[in-house]
Computed example of a mutant assay.
Amino acid sequence: MNTMIGRLQGILLEKSAPDLLIDVAGVGYELQAPISTCAVLGRIGDPVILYTHLAIREDAHQLYGFSDKGQRTLFRTLIKVSGVGPKLALAILSGMDVNSFAQCVHAEDINALTKLPGVGKKTAERLIVEMRDRLKEWQTPGPLWDAVSQQEVAAADAILMEAESALIALGYKPTEAAKMLNKVAGQATTPEELIRLALRNSLGNA
Rank of each mutant, 00 (worst) to 15 (best):
Q32L: 03
A33G: 00
I35F: 07
I35W: 09
S36H: 04
T37F: 08
V40T: 15
V40I: 12
V40R: 06
G42Q: 00
D46T: 09
L50S: 01
T52V: 05
T52R: 01
H53D: 10
H53S: 12
L54W: 01
L54Y: 02
E58S: 13
D59K: 02
L63M: 08
L63S: 14
G65R: 15
F66K: 01
D68V: 03
Q71S: 11
F75E: 14
V81A: 11
G83N: 15
G85A: 09
L88M: 14
L88T: 14
A89H: 06
L90R: 00
A91H: 12
A91P: 12
L93D: 04
L93Q: 09
S94A: 04
G95T: 06
V98H: 08
S100V: 04
F101K: 08
F101V: 02
A102C: 05
A102P: 01
C104T: 01
C104S: 15
V105H: 09
V105Y: 10
H106Q: 13
I110E: 13
I110G: 06
L113A: 04
L113C: 07
L113V: 07
T114G: 05
K115H: 15
K115Y: 11
L116F: 01
P117C: 06
P117D: 09
V119G: 00
K121G: 10
K122D: 07
K122V: 06
T123D: 06
T123H: 05
A124W: 08
L127Y: 13
I128T: 09
E130P: 09
M131K: 06
D133H: 14
K136T: 13
W138P: 08
T140H: 13
L144Y: 12
L144P: 03
W145H: 05
D146K: 13
V148N: 02
S149M: 04
Q151Y: 10
Q151A: 03
E152S: 06
E152Y: 02
V153G: 03
A154R: 07
A155H: 14
A155G: 09
D157T: 09
A158F: 10
L160E: 13
E164I: 00
S165Q: 14
I168Y: 02
L170A: 01
G171K: 12
Y172H: 15
P174D: 08
E176W: 05
